[in-house]
Design a protein around this nucleic acid. Structure first.
Lengths: 99, 99
DNA sequence: AATATATATACAAATATGTTGATATCACAG
DNA sequence: CTGTGATATCAACATATTTGTATATATATT
């Protein structure tokens, strides 16, 4: 599948997706939610050692742009990956970065 | 390979790579250079319908950040992908965007 | 040297993104 | 209704990215 043969709209969507995850914190979040993991905001911010408000802001961004979904359970809100196939992409990315 | 288990430096590198290609023009360029293609600046800017200076600027950015290499042949400068495995990543990306 | 072609760069304006800390909202237990 | 834990938002400021246009540099040809 080649981007250059495709319409500008497709390029925009693809670069939008990349932009969204092209942030260390968001990359870490997405990576944490691979394999169908569902985690609350607290679990995420503690696990990654970032401020609660920072984690929340990134989670909202990821959700707004269609990468995550969330569901409330009691006082917690659980986030999870909405786009299947993102895990594969991260795999390729890790490969590109190490090799 | 999981990012969250890795050092911040790795996350920085990965998000840097993503940021670099997270631009419609650069995505188109990288896509054009998949499969070992070698193209001159002229060929690229004509093929993608962008100004010469715009193409050149993006090519320099991609080269500076280690994604492309270039070689002069006569008056032309040919660019090509330096990172193998980027093609695979674009494949995943296209999958994520359509599905 | 003069010209033409190919590529790169400079600069300023516009736009977007990130950061921090404080504060607001929401849900539940008692 | 109050207190507490969980989550989201806001404002202000700093930084970075993009764009357009013009111009500079390099190479080759004659």
């Amino acid at each position: 599948m080649k981007f250059n043969e495709l319409n500008p709209e497709m390029l925009e969507r693809a670069s939008g997706l990349l932009k969204t995850i092209a942030h260390p914190a968001r990359l870490a979040i997405v990576s944490l939610l691979e394999n169908g993991n569902r985690l609350s905001v607290s679990e995420i911010h503690r696990s990654l050692g970032m401020e609660q408000s920072v984690a929340s802001r990134h989670l909202v961004i990821l959700k707004d742009r269609g990468i995550l979904s969330s569901e409330r359970e009691g006082r917690n809100i659980y986030y999870y990956l909405k786009i299947s196939g993102l895990g594969d992409m991260l795999g390729c990315l890790a490969g590109c970065c190490s090799g």
